[in-house]
């Protein structure tokens, strides 16, 4: 297993990342009292790279704004947001026009729920998307194939989104991404509320897509689900990424993990020690310019409260901490 992984990594050194996100920051304008607008920062200085054939998991607690990362890549943010930093797809800069061109074709989103589907359109029509007339027959054939593979009966295609059960809806959403022959697939919280069998099934779909050469970004709060299928895991905390670790770093007491938060997260899992650290994730207005993990950190120094540590590469992973080497 580890040999295979190592080879994977070697392969990667040569190849170019499919998607490169560098120093992405995202903020929203909100009205506070009356007529004043304030800027609320959700994501700051976030960097990540997605490679073809790999599953990259972005793990963070729900409501922390990590879903907005997906919306930023696809260019579907609301109008009161401000985005900075750079994004590159296949070495080309991802401009808003480019995003619109690639959206649904080369870059596909598997959304959280069926509320993203058109409630008045038959499922099969939605899965096929807006294709040219002459391609209709080919597309219909592919759709039937994919539905068969995911154990969806032909009758499902004639249903409306609200008639689908939870598990069916999940498979329909996955089929939509497959139909699009996308190269980059972003799955946004695909797992909550699934029992173990459906969960494993869903995760297998993502792994399959990666095996077929797609780059998959799995955005989730469920680190256990991420551990099952990912190649790399990025830990999202208070608007930024604290660590990007390889999957094999998560073992034993987490001694291979680089950031104290990742280690704490690992040790908090019920199958591990089920042990918590004190404190809570800071809200955006509670940050004071230093390391976002300062309040809860066991290895902090005075220097850490001054400014945000840089992301640095350590033993095959990335970490944002002053005090590890």
């Amino acid at each position: 297993m580890s040999v295979e992984m190592a080879m994977n990594n070697d392969d990667r050194e040569g190849s170019e990342a499919l998607l490169k996100v560098k120093d992405l920051s995202l903020s929203f304008f909100q009205y506070t009292s009356g007529l004043r607008q304030t800027e609320l920062k959700i994501i700051s200085n976030m960097s990540l790279e997605a490679y073809s054939g790999e599953v990259l998991a972005v793990v963070g607690s729900s409501g922390s704004g990590k879903s907005l990362l997906a919306h930023a890549i696809l260019g579907i943010l609301p109008s009161n947001s401000r985005l900075s930093g750079s994004m590159e797809y296949k070495g080309q800069s991802l401009t808003p026009e480019k995003k619109e061109e690639l959206r649904g074709k080369e870059i596909a989103l598997i959304p959280q729920s069926t509320t993203y589907l058109d409630p008045l359109m038959k499922v099969s029509e939605q899965v096929m998307g807006s294709s040219e007339k002459k391609d209709k027959e080919v597309m219909r054939k592919r759709q039937t194939e994919i539905f068969q593979r995911y154990n969806l009966k032909a009758a499902v295609g004639r249903m409306l989104p609200h008639e689908l059960s939870g598990g069916m809806a999940r498979r329909v959403l996955v089929s939509t991404a497959l139909m699009s022959s996308a190269k980059l697939i972003i799955a946004d919280e695909p797992t909550p509320g699934l029992d173990e069998r459906s969960l494993d099934e869903t995760l297998k779909y993502f792994k399959d897509m990666a095996k077929k050469g797609c780059a998959v970004i799995l955005i989730t709060h469920d680190i256990e689900a991420a551990l099952k299928i990912s190649d790399r895991i990025a830990i999202f905390y208070a608007g930024t990424i604290l660590e990007e670790a390889r999957i094999e770093d998560f073992r034993n007491d987490g001694e291979d993990l680089r950031h104290p938060y990742t280690r704490a997260l690992w040790n908090a899992l019920p199958q591990n020690r089920f042990q918590a650290i004190k404190g809570h994730q800071p809200m955006q207005d509670e940050l004071n310019g230093g390391c976002v993990y300062f309040e809860r950190c066991s290895i902090r120094t005075e220097h850490c409260s001054k400014d945000i540590p840089q992301l640095k590469r350590i033993s095959g992973g990335l970490v944002r901490c002053n005090n590890v080497s």
Partner: peptide, 17 residues
């Protein structure tokens, strides 16, 4: 009913404790 399904692992432990 699934009260810690949507929270991170550390918060889950804190809540259950």
């Amino acid at each position: 009913d699934e009260i810690t399904t949507m929270v991170d692992a550390i918060t889950q432990v804190q809540i259950w404790e």
